[in-house]
């Protein structure tokens, strides 16, 4: 590897350690007992088990952490948080990684980030979620026709039952939150 590239890697490594700083502090009492892994319904599908992921976080292994599939597979069941003998907020820590993964636009996490982003965009526009609009937005962002096709059977049943509609009556639900979202963003930038 050319030396220029090495120094670049080291530089990113340094700045990215700061990204994990607050999380490292939060998890510093981890004793690596593995109760989180044993309690996780999806651990067998993860490349790094939750216990290993927390160790990597503590060691500042930013690349490994953000390119792992682990936090994208967390379904927030809160079993690890409930059982952690050190009382660590592990599900919240997964959420922190999800937030950072979305901000860093990590490829492995992109489908999740696009899904949640589409959801929140609909909330910002209407105040309440418009399921049809938000899924449409997600499908467009994903640019993969196989995804909407998978949802077609369910979508048709929901349309037939009148649970979703292609042109929802916006006058009934319109409570736009643009300014609310703006204020949140401003306050977050100030931090």
């Amino acid at each position: 590897m050319p030396s220029a590239e090495i120094s670049l890697t080291i530089n990113t490594q340094e700045t990215e350690e700061d990204i994990l700083g607050p999380l490292q502090e939060e998890l510093s009492a981890c004793i690596q007992c593995g109760t989180c892994t044993a309690s996780c319904r999806n651990a067998q599908l993860m490349d790094f088990t939750p216990r290993r992921l927390w160790r990597l976080v503590l060691m500042g292994q930013t690349e490994e952490v953000f390119h792992s599939k682990t936090f994208a597979l967390c379904s927030a069941c809160y079993y690890c948080t409930l059982r952690c003998p050190r009382g660590l907020p592990l599900t919240d820590a997964m959420n922190t990684l999800k937030q950072l993964g979305a901000k860093k636009n990590v490829a492995e996490y992109r489908p999740n980030a696009r899904f949640y982003g589409s959801f929140l965009e609909s909330v910002r526009r209407h105040g309440r979620i418009n399921e049809m609009e938000f899924m449409r937005r997600y499908f467009i962002l994903m640019k993969n026709p196989a995804i909407p096709i998978k949802f077609t059977p369910l979508g048709i049943r929901l349309l037939r039952k009148g649970k979703i509609s292609i042109f929802p009556d916006k006058s009934k639900t319109e409570r736009p939150l643009d300014q609310f979202f703006q204020r949140v963003e401003e306050l977050e930038r100030q931090q």
């Binding site: 959420n95 999800k98 980030a113 949640y116 929140l120 105040g127 979620i129 979202f181 306050l187």
Partner: peptide, 20 residues
């Protein structure tokens, strides 16, 4: 005039939004 609670989306995007 209630609005969305943020579901599982806000907590995955912004901590402050997920509380606000």
């Amino acid at each position: 005039d209630w609005t969305c609670c943020g579901a599982s989306a806000a907590e995955a995007q912004s901590e402050l939004l997920s509380i606000a």
